[in-house]
């Protein structure tokens, strides 16, 4: 298996701000490769450099062996791209959008007819081909946008937060599509800030403040965290995090929804000491139970360990 995407020390500055800082990774053919991180972590900037929308300040990137600086025009024929914002033409019908992208990607004749059928069926838009795209529900629009982005059957597909704003059901069916594209050999690079979505990726790049914090499969990322994690139910999670930070035996405390996840060196000792510590501050403590490390826990721990702060 060769590498579909090779990235070496890719960097982009905007003035003094380093949006992407010496990022290096490879993506194998047919892999689903995810970027996970908060807003401003550099996910979108990385994708834009690889799709030729932004020039890198320094470093190298290759897509299917083509250099992102020199061969941007040729790369654009071999990739599909779906931007963060829904970006089909709302005032064109479903068919007219397909026609436009077919023209731009040079798909025509019998191949276009076959691809059109595939897109319409995949997006669940049979019978709605003449409807204005702007009138479709968001989930349908996003599937149509994906269909238009892969109309020319590109070997590499870039999706920038493809499921933001759609409901969980639509997100699940969108992922079935991504999986089937990947099974058919398409390499998929996507960014997300949904942790549960990140679990579906074959490999995951954790990004924070422009840097690559860790890169591995989701199970192995979780295994990076050897210390146990306790989930603490408490009435005021932000104050609890404040109280626990720096307490003896506590390595890390962070918000997790309305609960607090505490990374500890000794689970049994901490379970005994935490309630007293919190109740002394006037907080009411509910259940405390060990939980499996989530990717978010890993993320927070790795970022702290690297001496950084999580933003966003």
């Amino acid at each position: 298996m060769s590498d579909a995407v090779e990235v070496r020390d890719l960097t982009r500055r905007f003035g003094d701000f380093v949006a992407v800082d010496h990022v290096t990774f490879d993506v194998r053919e047919g892999e689903i490769f995810g970027f996970l991180g908060p807003n401003g972590a550099g996910k979108t900037t990385t994708i834009k450099m690889l799709t030729g929308l932004l020039a890198p300040t320094s470093g190298e990137g290759r897509i299917a062996g083509l250099d992102v600086r020199r061969d941007a025009a040729r790369i654009r024929r071999r990739i599909g791209y779906m931007s963060q914002r829904f970006s089909l033409y709302a005032d064109l019908t479903v068919d007219e959008n397909i026609d436009l992208f077919a023209g731009l990607y040079g798909v025509r004749g019998d191949r276009l007819a076959a691809r059109r059928r595939w897109v319409v069926e995949m997006a669940g838009l049979a019978g709605r081909e003449r409807q204005l795209t702007g009138e479709l529900p968001l989930g349908f629009k996003q599937r149509l946008a994906l269909g238009c982005a892969v109309l020319h059957q590109p070997p590499v597909l870039f999706l920038d937060e493809p499921t933001s704003g759609v409901d969980p059901a639509a997100r699940r069916s969108f992922w079935e599509l991504i999986n089937s594209l990947s099974a058919a050999g398409t390499t998929v690079l996507l960014s997300t800030h949904y942790i549960e979505e990140a679990e579906y990726c074959n490999r995951l790049a954790l990004m924070n403040r422009g840097r690559l914090v860790a890169l591995d499969t989701p199970p192995r990322l979780r295994a990076l965290l050897e210390e146990p994690i306790l989930e603490v139910r408490v009435d005021d999670a932000p104050r609890a995090v404040e109280a626990l930070a720096g307490a003896p035996g506590v390595l890390e405390a962070s918000m997790f929804g309305r609960t607090v996840h505490v990374l500890v060196s000794d689970a049994a000792g901490a379970r005994a000491s935490i309630p007293a510590l919190l109740e002394a501050r006037g907080l009411r403590v509910g259940a405390i139970a060990p939980v499996r490390a989530s990717l978010e826990d890993v993320f927070v721990a790795l970022v702290r360990r690297a001496g950084g702060a999580v933003e966003g």
Binding site: T51, G52, L53, A73, R76, R77, I79, Y81, M82, S83, R85, F86, S87, L88, Y89, A90, F101, L104, Y105, G106, F158
Partner: peptide, 14 residues
């Protein structure tokens, strides 16, 4: 304004 420029720019159109 509508974000379609980004999509166009990622296609082979010059």
């Amino acid at each position: 304004e509508r974000g379609t420029m980004e999509q166009l720019a990622a296609t082979p159109v010059g």
